[in-house]
């Protein structure tokens, strides 16, 4: 049923397409003149609705793009520096810091950002990076969990992402995570709210088009946490989901909820092959 509707919709849009269809620009993303980041790739086989995938960076204005090309210009790096201090600071009743177990974040965390959300065998659950950060805080540091979308959390996510920049997103979708992935996929195609809009309506069927002043991207997550010029802070990925669902005049879900964990897993997997960009800059 869903698939049928999507096909009809796609057919309708193709019929009325004006040529602006899927107009990501042709710019190339190299950070600090050194890290080459893949912003376009063939869509993974599990994404039926797309043939190419693009990073959100390719849909932004040139000034916004430029802010991400040098860490000195990227406002997210203030938070990265703050998180580096936290990384090395003992906190909690166990008398440990993150560095006590993981040493140099730039070495030990290489590749981590690219594979989350992922299955945690011991806990028997799908964990987002934010959940893993909190699990380390409560279990290993014996410190308090961060608020799921708090500044401390987005800063720590940003720091941990830095050593993975340029590595291709490679989120597993089968084995123990498969049912969660299916749940996320179902959510992606559900038309929520009084406006009856699904993620796919905007980010699969209409990326490249303007919806009022907004240039729609594919809603990829390889750039999260994202520094937004609009609210001048790092934004957690599930906060972004929350905003997008709220904008359909729907009752949204809460960051950290099982629903959003499933959605994050699914959406992240749609970007498999794009380079990790986090912390990125968007408007």
């Amino acid at each position: 049923m869903l698939r049928r509707t999507t096909t009809i919709l796609a057919a309708g849009l193709v019929a009325v397409a004006t040529g602006a269809w899927s107009d990501a620009d042709d710019n190339e993303l190299v950070v600090n003149d050194e890290i080459e980041i893949t912003t376009q790739a063939a869509a993974p086989a599990h994404v039926e609705g797309l043939s190419e995938i693009y990073s959100g960076w390719r849909f932004r204005e040139v000034d916004t793009q430029a802010a991400q090309m040098d860490d000195f210009d990227n406002p997210a790096f203030l938070a990265v520096d703050a998180a580096q201090i936290k990384w090395d600071t003992v906190e909690g009743e166990a008398g440990k810091s993150c560095a006590s177990c993981h040493d140099d974040v730039m070495e030990s965390m290489k590749g981590v950002r690219a594979v989350y959300p992922k299955w945690n065998e011991t806990a028997g659950e799908v964990r987002t990076l934010a959940m893993q950060i909190n699990a380390c805080r409560t279990e290993n540091l014996k410190a308090e969990a961060y608020g799921y979308t708090s500044n401390d959390m987005t800063a720590m996510e940003a720091l941990i992402s830095v050593p993975s920049r340029g590595m291709p997103m490679d989120v597993a979708i089968d084995g123990p995570v498969q049912s969660t992935w299916e749940q996320g996929k179902e959510m992606y195609y559900t038309r929520y709210g009084q406006l009856e809009l699904s993620c796919s309506n905007c980010h699969e069927d209409n990326y490249g088009n303007y919806i009022r002043a907004d240039h729609l991207s594919q809603g990829q997550t390889n750039g999260f946490p994202v520094y937004r010029l609009k609210n001048t802070k790092l934004n957690q990925v599930q906060d972004r989901f929350k905003g997008c669902i709220r904008d359909t005049r729907a009752e949204t879900f809460n960051p950290g909820s099982p629903e959003f964990v499933a959605l994050e897993l699914y959406v992240a997997s749609r970007g498999n092959g794009l380079g990790v960009e986090a912390p990125s800059v968007r408007n």
Binding site: T5, L9, G193, L197, R249, A250
Partner: peptide, 28 residues
Amino acid sequence: TYEGTIMPSFYKISGFVRPGDAFTGKAA
């Protein structure tokens, strides 16, 4: 008129998934 269109229905009040209270993100 157009099955499955993205265009919202402007004169309809039921049949929604998780309808919200306008743009607050809260339940209607």
